[in-house]
Amino acid sequence: MVQDRTGSEADDAVTDLYAAHYVRLVRLATLLQGNEAVAEEVVQDAFVALHRRWRRLREPAAAVAYLRTSVVHGCRSVQRRRGVAARHPEEPPGHAPSAEQVAVGGAAADAVVEALRGLPDRQREALVLRYYGGLSESEIASAMKISNGAVKSHASRGLAGLRDAMAEWS
């Protein structure tokens, strides 16, 4: 039956995309909204939604872009939804760092992540997608559903916002 074949294609696609992108997306989502357990939920939601839409996406590039957009959107929602976060204990991303991690600059990373947390959503998204996601301006624009010009201005204002925090350790 038609839907069975599509169903198993979607299953295979989810398996492949999971192997290639799950960890990175969870890390991205953790940087965006701060809680690792919530990040996993958001990314799993994105995969479930992708499975449902597989017929319309079909090819891997579109699927990855769809996952990214869903994760950004999901994190934005979570930012405003303390209800979900309350189910999980508050924790900074990368809790319980090892001694080595701290030694190689964990404190500096914490300062940036801390400062990032204080930025408006859009600025934080632009910075995380660019400097952690390694995305091009237009990829960022499509993930955030805004124009290229708006990406530029959010990113530069975000960087300016981080500058104070960075001055303390650079």
């Binding site: 990040a39 996993e40 991690q101 964990g106 990373a109 940036v112 960087l159």
Partner: peptide, 25 residues
């Protein structure tokens, strides 16, 4: 910018997703 890049990657690498994500999906 390089510092922001390094800091984000360092923070991100400490995030280790659970083993059962695919099963949950």
């Amino acid at each position: 910018e390089q510092q922001v890049h390094d800091a984000l990657h360092r923070a991100a690498e400490r995030v280790q997703p659970g083993p059962d994500g695919l099963a949950r999906i």
